[in-house]
Design a protein around this nucleic acid. Structure first.
Lengths: 150, 150
DNA sequence: CGTGAAATTCTTAGGGA
DNA sequence: TCCCTAAGAATTTCACG
């Protein structure tokens, strides 16, 4: 996406995906039909892979979050941890990382008890050791990748 | 938000924030005006704090991501790291954590050189030590907090 | 919470740079 | 190819029951 107009559109829609085409076209400086065509192209090409609402974790019953580093118990076995864990919906993100551990997960749960159960599920499902770092307070998260267009 | 209808609406709009009120009302089983009123209430009460597009990091020039743990150099000084770092738009999230470090950041940059510069900026801006864990591959992230309504 | 009518927005076809 | 305009279709909005 080298086109600067696409870049501004991506930033604009990223900051406010529920904006109407009319509002976006005003910010971008194109007609709404042109914005619509570009938006469809961005969605279809995968530059925009989806949209999300940012929910208050406490309001939806997930006040506790944590980072969980995982390491396979048996390095000789084929490592398919991400797939083996995908069904656990408490896991919001799964990255492979450089460092001691193999993967870093970010998880959200309702209580310490749920976290304990989740860790047990993770160990069992993927045959891994875990190292959990509990989040005490979230100052900000899910900030937009692109700064708002000037 | 104890109301199960609000819960389903939050899940539905979270999974597809660009859906029309008509589409949402069909999934929820209410009229579109009722959905509109509930949605406004969820937004105004902060249960829904905003909306985001999920962008392909490579397509928008941020192919490299990392976790950065930070620890104040001088524990005696008042610790306002989150505010001191807020202007660095490469930082997508900032949590205080239990464990050795004080905060965990998640950052996105365009290149190793940019990461180096960002780490320098973070150390300088907040007077902290850093410990960086580079992300090698992201299997999934930004999965919806709530599973889609049945 | 639903209905209905007015205002706004989306969608698509057609034509021009 | 990319853009704009215009008209019909769909949606949103909001007062009222």
């Amino acid at each position: 996406m080298d086109d600067p107009v696409d870049m501004r559109l991506a930033a604009a829609v990223s900051n406010d995906p529920r904006a109407t085409l009319a509002q976006l076209s005003e910010r971008i400086g194109l007609s709404s039909s042109a914005v619509q065509a570009r938006l469809k192209r961005l969605e279809h090409s995968g530059v925009i892979s989806g949209y999300r609402a940012v929910l208050d974790p406490e309001a939806v019953g997930k006040p506790l979050s944590a980072f969980i580093e995982i390491t396979p118990l048996d390095p000789a076995q084929p490592d398919t941890a991400p797939e083996l864990l995908e069904h656990l919906t408490a896991i919001e993100a799964c990255h492979s990382i450089a460092g001691e551990a193999s993967y870093m997960l970010f998880v959200r749960v309702g209580s310490p008890r749920e976290l304990e159960a989740l860790i047990r599920d993770i160990r069992h499902a993927a045959s891994v050791n875990t190292r959990t770092t509990v989040v005490l307070q979230t100052f900000y998260e899910q900030r937009p990748i692109l700064p708002p267009p000037v």
